[in-house]
Computed example of a mutant assay.
Amino acid sequence: MNDSTALPRVLVTGANRGIGREIALALAPDHHLLLGGRDEAALTALAAGLPSAETFVADLADPAATAAAVGALDLPGGLDGLVHSAGVLVSGRVEDLSTADWTRSLTVNVTAVAELTRLLLPALREARGTVVTINSGSGYTAKGGGGAYAASKFALRALTDALRDEERAHGVRVSSVHPGRVATDMQRQLRDFEKGEYRESDYVDPATVAATVRLALDLPAEASIDELSVRPR
């Protein structure tokens, strides 16, 4: 077991599956990880197999639960990294989407990101840390059937742009990573909605997205990756 006090501390949301899990695995050899998510059993099992990790269990759509979970954290020296990988895919044509659909997409993909970041800003400033948001190609373009998801990702890009400008004076870097289609359960869900075949080889490996996140976190202190687009070749 590594001495967690000597390792950079990074909180990864959505850590129990997909891109978030791959990010945790990529950082595990030389970071102390705070594994974020709602499934306590899955997070505990993941933490048990990593050199230095603990769980951060919270429903990020619940501000009170998020605040309580942050309040329970012990972060000597601050927080070196915050990676927002948790998110939801809400698909449907505008004529079919309900108010609840729009609210869910924007709450999980934008508001929860803003609130968790706000709560952790003192720790991030103390460590001159890095915030990384996992955005999407849908943060640049919107297509029919994907309006609610794209709206949340456009908003997330605006959030990261504003946060980057605000936090530059505090030494906090903010990076926005925009993967194209990635081989995850979310991609299966999307292909089901599109009534198309899911072929894993057509998509980016989640480990490749994790490598780009690691690059943003590991970049020397004098530089910042503001935006990075990662597409299937």
Rank of each mutant, 00 (worst) to 15 (best):
L34P: 01
T133L: 03
A45E: 15
Y198T: 14
N2R: 15
Y198S: 02
L34V: 08
V12I: 15
G49S: 13
E115P: 00
G145K: 03
R181I: 04
V12K: 05
A58H: 05
R93P: 00
V10I: 15
L82T: 04
R21S: 03
V70I: 13
T107R: 11
D59T: 07
L219G: 07
D74N: 10
D165P: 00
A127E: 03
A142N: 01
R21G: 04
L120R: 12
S176M: 05
G20A: 11
N109Y: 07
V110I: 12
V132Y: 01
G87P: 00
A150T: 02
A6P: 00
G180H: 11
L43P: 02
G87K: 00
V209Q: 02
A211N: 07
H31A: 10
E194Y: 10
A15R: 03
D218F: 12
L121G: 08
L217R: 09
A86R: 01
L121I: 14
A207V: 07
V57Y: 06
P63S: 12
I134M: 09
Y140E: 12
A26L: 06
V174W: 02
V83T: 05
E166L: 04
S4W: 13
R164G: 11
A28F: 09
V94T: 13
D39M: 04
S52T: 12
A24D: 02
V172T: 11
A15T: 02
A127T: 08
R191Q: 15
R231Y: 12
G171T: 07
T111W: 07
N109E: 06
A6C: 06
S105C: 05
P63L: 07
T212P: 00
S229Q: 13
A183W: 10
G87A: 09
V12E: 03
V113I: 09
A223V: 14
V113L: 04
A65N: 06
L7H: 10
G71I: 09
R125Q: 14
R199P: 04
R21M: 10
T5M: 14
A64T: 14
S85V: 06
K195S: 14
N2Q: 15
F193P: 00
G36C: 07
A61F: 02
G18S: 05
L97M: 08
S98V: 03
G49W: 09
A155L: 03
T103S: 15
D3R: 13
R164C: 08
D80A: 08
A26W: 00
G147K: 00
A158N: 10
A155F: 06
E40G: 10
R188G: 05
P76D: 14
E167Y: 09
A221D: 12
V213W: 01
D30P: 08
V94D: 05
R168P: 00
G77R: 11
R181P: 00
H32C: 09
P8D: 05
A48L: 09
D96M: 11
R21T: 02
N135I: 01
A112L: 08
T103L: 15
G139E: 03
A15D: 04
L79F: 07
R104P: 03
P76R: 13
L73P: 05
A68S: 14
I134S: 00
A223W: 14
R231L: 13
G137I: 04
G18I: 01
